[in-house]
Design a protein around this nucleic acid. Structure first.
Lengths: 248, 248
DNA sequence: ACTTCCCCACTTCCATACAAGTCAACACAA
DNA sequence: TTGTGTTGACTTGTATGGAAGTGGGGAAGT
């Protein structure tokens, strides 16, 4: 829908409030690795670039600091944070816990209309699997959001979206590490299990699905070591992230 | 530790950055119902009250809007949001899912030192049970944070803290609705189950513990209807919040 | 050559001024 | 009395100017 190169040229609508727009633009640029880790974002520079004053830029920074995408060192500069291995693992852990409960609710209450909707989305996903990865990620986002809304906890997904950015940064580093067709197959297994109203199967399917990133994360870190915080993860032996339930 | 009345007189340390302090003060005042729902918070007024300019106040507002505690209507005013019934239910749902997985991990990996720490905290909780409710809530916060850290997902608790404020507002409305001694007993059941390394029992204990608010929430809403959003919740029949697992 | 100190460019943070929109009260006409 | 138009005191959003702090480069002294 929107290629990476276009992001750099996004213009702001001066008839609306500028700060929120700027916040979204910068967040997208960071997640898509257009703004590299450790690079400095000076307020006046970005202000000139987008034709606004420093204040909206400042206010946009605040939220991004809260999301762990930026780090401001007072009187020194504002920098794009490197990917925090621990933060990724924690975000993934939270996401697995929440979405596991979501699909369990759906196995109990899910309607046939939902299953039909999901299957339509899945076929749509297959159609764009070989398209740009950005396109699939949008559909993936929509798929998981649909599950949350169907379970009656749509606002929970809004919360998850805040921490998901940590995981998305990893994805955008190397799409090759993520086999899209495999992810779509897992989506299908989730839909199947919901249709069969099997709570245990749908839970296993979702937990397996959300653990895919665990296998690729160490390789991504090896490939782009300077994109990651120097913390542990270099010693990812048994990273205390194996969740409670043995999968199949 | 800090009585409600003291909050209004919190002064800011002008040697450090002002915005974060102001943010914490305002958040606390909102959660503790010192700043009432629907009341207007004008930037220049608060600026004068705390002896700073409008800009730090504005920046403090941004985060609180993100947390769903404030609502700013452009060119009209900034208002304390009423408690959103749906948001409380969703926050509770997320918390249950995450903390259930946390204690399951602890049942598998938990150490004896952890159990000893928890029991110490519990006896401390009993000691202050008849003290001010604020004091118990601090200990309660510490207890749950300890569990997360022991499970190796300490940052996950930082994530949860963002949405927990929605639940805390309900608690601070009526402490009488929450029987502290009962909550402490449930803490003890969690500690017991961890010691016994029983995943199923500790999960049930935690889920039961975190569902306490569900029984009191409708009563609190009845008692303070104007503190709540006018949404559903007035029709809380089967509010789609009964989670996946039947308890005991 | 090496250490020490100072100055200056640069940053974020705060204060202040201006712009633009909203809403209520009020004057005024029918 | 009622309906209408307008003014003006509010609000938040944006722009800009200092204040305080950081760090590097260069000059001076040993």
């Amino acid at each position: 829908m929107m290629a990476v190169s276009d992001i750099e040229e996004w213009k702001l609508d001066h008839s609306k409030a500028v700060s929120p727009q700027l916040r979204n633009v910068l967040r997208t640029r960071i997640i898509r690795n257009d703004l590299r880790p450790m690079s400095r974002l000076s307020e006046p520079e970005l202000a000139k670039e987008y034709g606004v004053s420093r204040q909206p830029v400042r206010e946009a920074f605040i939220t991004l600091v809260e999301e762990g995408l930026l780090e401001v060192r007072p009187q020194r500069g504002t920098y794009v944070k490197r990917i925090d291995y621990e933060a990724v693992l924690n975000a993934r852990f939270v996401r697995e816990a929440v979405e596991a409960d979501i699909v369990c609710k759906l196995a109990a209450e899910g309607s046939a209309a939902l299953v039909k909707d999901l299957r339509g989305q899945i076929s749509h996903q297959r159609a764009v699997a070989d398209d740009t990865p950005e396109h699939f990620m949008e559909l993936d986002e929509h798929f998981h959001r649909t599950l949350a809304r169907a379970a009656g906890v749509g606002r929970s997904w809004d919360f998850l979206a805040q921490i998901k950015s940590q995981m998305d940064r990893v994805r955008f580093l190397t799409f090759e590490e993520f086999h899209i067709s495999k992810l779509i197959d897992q989506h299908e297994q989730v839909a199947d299990a919901i249709e069969q109203k099997s709570a245990s199967r749908v839970e296993d399917a979702m937990r397996t699905h959300l653990r895919e990133i665990l296998s690729s994360l160490p390789r991504v870190q090896k490939l782009y070591p300077d994109h990651f915080e120097d913390s542990r993860g270099a010693i990812p032996g048994k990273s205390a992230q194996n969740s409670r339930r043995r999968i199949s």
